[in-house]
Design a protein around this nucleic acid. Structure first.
Length: 219
DNA sequence: CGCCAGGGCCATA
DNA sequence: TATGGCCATGGC
């Protein structure tokens, strides 16, 4: 039992409060956002989503010409690949009738494997979709999470799946908790500890002295 | 002006 | 299996 991890979660939660993620109007919009935000600032994703002008649904993207789709999502960057990814994602979703309530009845691992088979969906995007679109208890590991782990010597040198499994071993399967924790990590990173060498006003003040250099324990 | 953002694919060894 | 190059826009 790594009490530092629990302590970290409690610190973040008490400082930032409940996060209420993912910012989207439907499960499908979560999925689209998960693709568009790959290695891309969220502000760019918002611009792209706004350009759908209320038509962000599976049928619309299914019927849209490739070039038109690229033009809409242009502000999110990597639009040539992401247009292909959105098409493949939507094609996969069609087997569930574009219906989240149907998909939710399937076993999480089955859906995860299917998602990983979709072009453009890797581990993080798959877990983001599982957790934030469909409320499955699948912990999301992103660059911020990895950075945090480096900083606090949690799972040092481990890969995606090792870190994911570690978090899921410390915390019981709980979609609400996984949701909050990952959102808190991102919120914290954006607010305080992105690149600044010293985190002024950081809620984890004593642990954020030097980014990526000092390994400070949370005890 | 340079850096980089809520990754993933693909070629290469 | 594990790196490295590549993809592209917009905010700072």
């Amino acid at each position: 039992m790594d009490n530092r991890l629990i302590k970290l979660y409690e610190l973040l939660l008490s400082y930032y409060g409940e996060q209420e993620w993912w910012p989207a109007n439907s499960p499908y919009e979560v999925m689209v956002g998960a693709i568009l935000t790959q290695n891309t600032a969220w502000g760019n994703v918002e611009m792209a989503i706004a350009r759908f002008e209320g038509n962000l649904n599976p049928e619309f993207i299914r019927d849209l010409e490739m070039e038109a789709l690229k033009e809409i999502i242009r502000p999110s960057g990597f639009f040539n690949q992401k247009a292909v990814y959105l098409k493949s994602l939507t094609s996969w979703y069609s087997q569930y009738n574009y219906d989240a309530s149907i998909l939710r009845r399937e076993p999480m691992e089955k859906i995860r494997n299917e998602l990983l088979g979709v072009k453009g969906i890797g581990p993080e995007t798959a877990d983001s979709i599982l957790l934030y679109a469909f409320n499955f208890p699948s912990f999301v590991v992103d660059t911020y999470t990895m950075r945090l782990c480096e900083r606090y010597s949690v799972c040092a040198g481990k890969n995606y799946n090792a870190v994911k499994q570690y978090f899921e071993q410390i915390f019981e399967p709980d979609a609400a908790l996984y949701n909050n924790f990952h959102a808190l990590i991102v919120t914290h990173a954006k607010t305080h500890c992105r690149k600044t060498p010293v985190c002024a006003g950081c809620p984890l003040e004593e642990t954020c002295v030097r980014v990526g250099v000092e390994r400070v324990s949370l005890t």
